[in-house]
Computed example of a mutant assay.
Amino acid sequence: MSEKKTKVAIIGSGNIGTDLMIKVMRHSQHLEMGAMVGIDPDSDGLARAKRMKVPTTHEGVDGLMAMDNFDEIEIVFDATSAKAHVANDAKLRPLGKRMIDLTPAAIGPFLVPAVNIDEHIDEPNVNMVTCGGQATIPIVAAVSRVVPVEYAEIVASIASKSAGPGTRANIDEFTETTSHAIVKVGKAKRGKAIIILNPAEPPLIMRDTVFCLVSAPDESVHEQIRASIEKMVGDVAAYVPGYRLKQKVQISEIPADQPVETLLAEGETDRPTHQVSVFLEVEGAAHYLPAYAGNLDIMTSAGVQVAERIAQKKETAR
């Protein structure tokens, strides 16, 4: 007899929520869909959910709470907006629902599976940072495991077509949340995040660039940094198969006339010696949008990874 799966609900029937639903239904070992929740009765996500025999409501969280199977749902993914998540969390967490936040609200601790899943797996609400954060923070963490990172800057470039209304509404929160997570999870002393919505046709695959300023004059340390990054890329690719290095890791000496002091954290006076440059590509699995939408794939894959671990831990404890 097969193990009973953990029922999940998804709030938000846009691009991220729909891709997440398809991943749960096609590939999850420990999860099953309990509900798809939206606010637009004509949304494509709700229509797809109905065709796939998933219970739906277009009345938001209140509609979810009124559903006959609400008590059976244990984990709730929120793929709405940062502002909406605050209200959704206030209603659902007191009722014992585990919240996986795919918005930049950051009510709960930041969670990047390849870096710190074991630290926060028991938290009632975890924040999945942002698509750019999921792609780049593992690299910052990989560098910081070898040598202190004085400053880390990430640039996430995604196809404009892969950014729905929810993503666009969260742009300001994206930069702020990702910058905080670069410091909190990546362990950089200061972080900065930039996102680019690229309107190119045909749409381009998600690209991410990571720059880290470090003090590493020794060539042997450079090799350790490269090895740490390559291992981390493999760790992320284990749950996001389209995640890869676009070219070899570059480590270059910082010219004496480059004013990097302006980038350092307040109170830092030691000038870094080298810049580590990492160029990534994230190809989507094309579960919902085409393969260019790696930003969807890395976010939803990370969310499913967390929910799977929660459900697996619960099953082990039985």
Rank of each mutant, 00 (worst) to 15 (best):
81 S>N: 10
154 I>W: 02
52 M>I: 00
38 G>E: 15
170 N>H: 10
279 F>M: 04
302 A>F: 07
19 D>M: 09
188 A>L: 08
34 G>L: 00
270 D>T: 14
46 L>V: 02
180 H>I: 12
30 H>Y: 14
183 V>I: 14
248 K>Y: 09
6 T>I: 08
158 I>L: 11
150 E>W: 04
286 A>F: 06
134 Q>G: 02
312 Q>A: 15
32 E>A: 10
237 A>F: 08
56 T>S: 10
90 A>V: 05
191 G>T: 10
153 E>N: 09
57 T>M: 10
70 F>V: 07
124 P>W: 13
52 M>R: 02
79 A>L: 13
196 I>F: 01
146 V>G: 01
17 G>F: 06
141 A>L: 01
52 M>G: 02
284 G>S: 09
247 Q>W: 09
74 E>R: 02
166 G>Y: 03
307 A>P: 00
231 K>A: 08
289 L>N: 10
266 E>F: 12
178 T>A: 13
317 A>D: 00
177 T>C: 15
31 L>E: 06
113 P>C: 03
317 A>P: 01
186 G>V: 06
80 T>G: 14
168 R>A: 04
73 I>G: 07
19 D>K: 08
166 G>W: 00
53 K>V: 07
270 D>L: 14
74 E>I: 05
260 V>C: 05
209 T>C: 07
300 T>F: 15
152 A>F: 14
230 E>Q: 08
129 V>D: 08
14 G>V: 01
228 S>M: 01
81 S>W: 06
12 G>H: 06
244 R>K: 07
180 H>V: 13
255 P>M: 11
19 D>E: 15
200 A>S: 11
143 V>G: 04
16 I>F: 12
297 D>P: 03
158 I>D: 03
71 D>M: 11
291 A>P: 02
259 P>F: 10
146 V>W: 02
313 K>D: 10
294 G>M: 14
103 T>G: 11
45 G>N: 07
52 M>Y: 09
199 P>D: 05
279 F>A: 07
303 G>D: 00
252 S>A: 13
202 P>G: 02
175 T>Q: 11
4 K>E: 15
223 E>R: 09
138 P>W: 07
41 P>K: 05
295 N>A: 14
94 P>Q: 03
229 I>H: 03
59 E>C: 03
99 M>H: 05
123 E>G: 12
209 T>E: 12
66 A>M: 09
65 M>Y: 05
58 H>K: 09
48 R>N: 03
268 E>G: 02
90 A>D: 08
204 L>M: 12
64 L>V: 01
262 T>H: 09
12 G>Y: 09
202 P>Y: 12
47 A>N: 10
292 Y>S: 02
232 M>R: 03
97 K>E: 01
250 Q>H: 13
286 A>V: 03
249 V>G: 10
67 M>E: 03
304 V>A: 12
198 N>L: 06
81 S>P: 00
86 V>Y: 15
69 N>Y: 04
270 D>C: 06
5 K>N: 05
37 V>F: 06
118 D>Q: 03
212 C>E: 11
298 I>H: 02
132 G>H: 05
96 G>P: 00
208 D>P: 05
203 P>F: 10
315 E>S: 14
309 R>S: 10
191 G>R: 11
151 Y>V: 12
71 D>F: 07
222 H>I: 00
281 E>C: 07
78 D>I: 15
70 F>G: 06
164 G>A: 04
57 T>F: 09
9 A>L: 00
4 K>C: 14
68 D>F: 08
293 A>C: 04
303 G>Y: 04
280 L>K: 02
244 R>Y: 00
